[in-house]
Design a protein around this nucleic acid. Structure first.
Length: 286
DNA sequence: ACGAGATCCTGTCAGC
DNA sequence: TGCTGACAGGATCTCG
């Protein structure tokens, strides 16, 4: 379930394999995966992948077409089970392959031709192919909250204060809301709330300055550490080299329902908060 | 306007 | 053994 650290890791492992390479053909065996932009697909053939980057949980390619001016942007959402992997030329699609990018041999002949697969078992993931102005007009993109690691801790705390005030929602529901803060999913919400000592079901508006500062600090520390550990592998997640992440070894609460709290030794509880499975320590999180 | 809940989807696992 | 149902979860839609 790729969240910010996992998508960041995929960007870092995919970039050396794909950035700078020329796309010779694109095919989408599963039509539903393309949310928008089928008309732009032919323009991608002969285009060069200029840059691979991340915003929130989106992974984006900037592709420079051979003739047209102006880049074309491909925005992928991996949802729970989306993956990228580069295979040798001629590799047949796998059971869950949704999009295939054929990549040309490079000019010097150092990098052989290959095929980039976008695989997604559950078909929740999708791709939108857009001109830059279409990306800018896309409501999901336009409404995304700030990147939690691009603010200082105090700026993040102030941002959360302004977005939490006057809301009746739980603090966890707010953390999962991509228009408030970008890139947080169920894993890192639970982990950050534990680290900050905050009850997930508590009202966001009731957090005081100390709570907001603790939450901002916990979010940034957890996300930075998770990026260093190359993300968390629960079931399906792999980076673009097929490697698992290691942050799951640092989980304090996620997936530890019924086990003991690492801080106080008491039993961890589980509940449904914001429609998601949620694990917390009733003694440490108030 | 806001928030809660259902929905999409398939593989895995617990329980009978 | 084999079947059934619960569960995983991000964004979007519907409903109160």
């Amino acid at each position: 379930m790729p969240e910010l650290p996992e998508v960041e890791t995929i960007v870092r492992t995919l970039t050396p394999q794909v950035a700078g390479r020329v796309i010779s053909a694109v095919t989408a065996p599963h039509p539903k995966v393309l949310q928008q932009g089928e008309a732009l697909l032919p323009l991608l053939s002969g285009g060069r992948v200029e840059r691979i980057f991340r915003r929130a949980k989106l992974l984006l390619f900037a592709v420079r077409p051979r003739q047209q001016a102006g880049d074309i942007l491909l925005a992928f959402h991996l949802k729970m089970t989306g993956r990228f992997f580069v295979h040798p030329e001629g590799t047949e699609p796998l059971k869950h392959t949704r999009i295939i990018f054929d990549l040309s041999e490079d000019d010097e002949g150092l990098t052989p031709a290959g095929r980039l697969f976008f695989d997604d078992m559950r078909t929740f993931g999708w791709c939108r192919v857009m001109r830059p102005d279409e990306l800018a007009d896309w409501p999901f993109w336009r409404n995304l909250g700030p990147e939690p690691l691009e603010l200082s801790r105090d700026e993040l705390a102030a941002h959360l204060a302004s977005r939490f005030s006057g809301r009746a929602r739980s603090v966890k529901a707010c953390l999962l809301d991509q228009t408030i803060l970008a890139g947080i999913g169920n894993i890192y919400a639970d982990e950050a709330l534990f680290k900050a000592g905050i009850r997930p079901s508590g009202a966001a508006a009731s957090l005081d300055g100390a709570g907001l500062a603790a939450l901002a600090g916990a979010l940034q520390e957890i996300l930075a550490l998770a990026i260093r550990e190359c993300g968390s592998s629960i079931r399906d997640y792999r980076d673009a080299l097929g490697n698992a992440g290691a942050f799951q070894n640092n989980f304090a609460v996620y997936g530890r329902k019924g086990e003991t709290c690492l801080a106080c030794g008491g039993p961890l509880q589980s509940a449904r908060v914001a429609g998601r499975g949620t694990v917390y320590c009733p003694a440490c999180q108030r």
